[in-house]
Nucleic acid binder design. Structure first.
Lengths: 193, 193
DNA sequence: GCCATGATGACATTGCGTGTCATCGCGTAG
DNA sequence: CTACGCGATGACACGCAATGTCATCATGGC
């Protein structure tokens, strides 16, 4: 095929994960990652904007949000669109990836800089949901609040899903947290339909 | 007094704000800030962990959270404690600072790195609220969700308060957003549609 | 067979952030 | 009054992240 083996990006990602786990994020230099991947430092930065981004190389949230709004029932309530969409996506795509998510989470939790970056990913998720809601005609303030709420639910549910002893489905955890939030806000549960 | 003029930190903060507004955040170097403040680069980093932190030198949120829980009615509902506390603090301390908040907000919005840092400040706020709620005996999940919700309300209300044409009180905006969120989450009262 | 394209290498550069030691005024013990 | 420790700063060196720029060279279309 090419002059170069064509999986440069994947090799960089693999090398980075390995080194971060072996030595820690801060102690790993970009030249080290590049060397293990058989590439140069400059090439690393052609594939990833900075050293932190390599951790999110296979971030699934943008794809999730696109699918959620692409498959959404036109009649459904805004929040149901998002929560049901999250559940469907998680059942199909997240449950089989627990090991990889665990690896990434452990690395992120070990470094303040990566924690900060994960907050940007959370904000990006909220922003994408907000955009989707706006396109459905949801008013701006409501869209922002529901998007932030959805991101909070995902964030907290993901942490619980990663830390749990058992194997409760991610979607169930999200749904339970939503009910807990409704209760804390003083709202009644919707009558079953 | 001291050998040195005793307001090094304040001088650094002033110099940084000026230079960020004159040249932009990215185009301003730490040596420039230090020079304008009559200090050295090394001293800058003794007062601020990094170049971004200088923007938050007078961050009021930690103090706000301490006061909220110190003055909280022991009987009040968790969410009311937080929202009422925010309103009281904002009425007393925020309304007079709009000009300064506007300056900071403009700088933050101009730079992706500062936006990312502001997300950490939001997370710190949520974490502090969560801790306060836990100490009041609120269950862990509820405390996390209410803390995230409170942080979202503050974040969005602050943006609206900064961008507004008029001068609606910050506390009123928070309260309105909370009602909007309740409406968006409470699906049980829907006569039609 | 020639050339545009695109990915990579090689090299230089800027600036953030840190470690380390020296300096020097101040307060305090003796 | 002197000596000493303390604390803030200066001076200097350094590693590394991140970017700009030009060269290289296989591939695929013409």
């Amino acid at each position: 095929m090419s002059r170069w083996t064509p999986d440069a990006r994947e090799r960089l990602e693999r090398a980075a994960f390995e080194l971060f786990e072996e030595q820690g994020f801060a102690a790993t230099t970009v030249p080290q990652i590049a060397e293990r991947a058989g590439l140069t430092t400059r090439t690393f930065f052609r594939h990833f904007a900075d050293k932190r981004e390599v951790i999110y190389a296979d971030d699934q949230f943008p794809r999730m949000v696109r699918r959620i709004f692409a498959e959404a029932d036109a009649e459904a309530e805004p929040l149901e669109v998002v929560v049901d969409g999250i559940r469907r996506f998680a059942d199909q795509e997240l449950e089989g990836r627990r090991a990889k998510v665990l690896r990434r989470t452990a690395i992120i939790r070990s470094d303040p800089g990566l924690l900060e970056r994960s907050l940007r990913k959370r904000a990006d998720l909220a922003g994408a949901i907000r955009t989707g809601l706006l396109e459905r005609g949801v008013p701006s303030t409501t869209a922002s609040l529901l998007a932030q709420t959805s991101a909070s639910l995902v964030e907290l549910a993901l942490a619980d899903w990663v830390d749990q002893e058992g194997d409760r489905p991610f979607g169930d955890i999200v749904a339970e947290h939503l009910e807990a939030l409704r209760a804390a806000l003083g709202l009644e549960r919707r009558p079953s339909e």
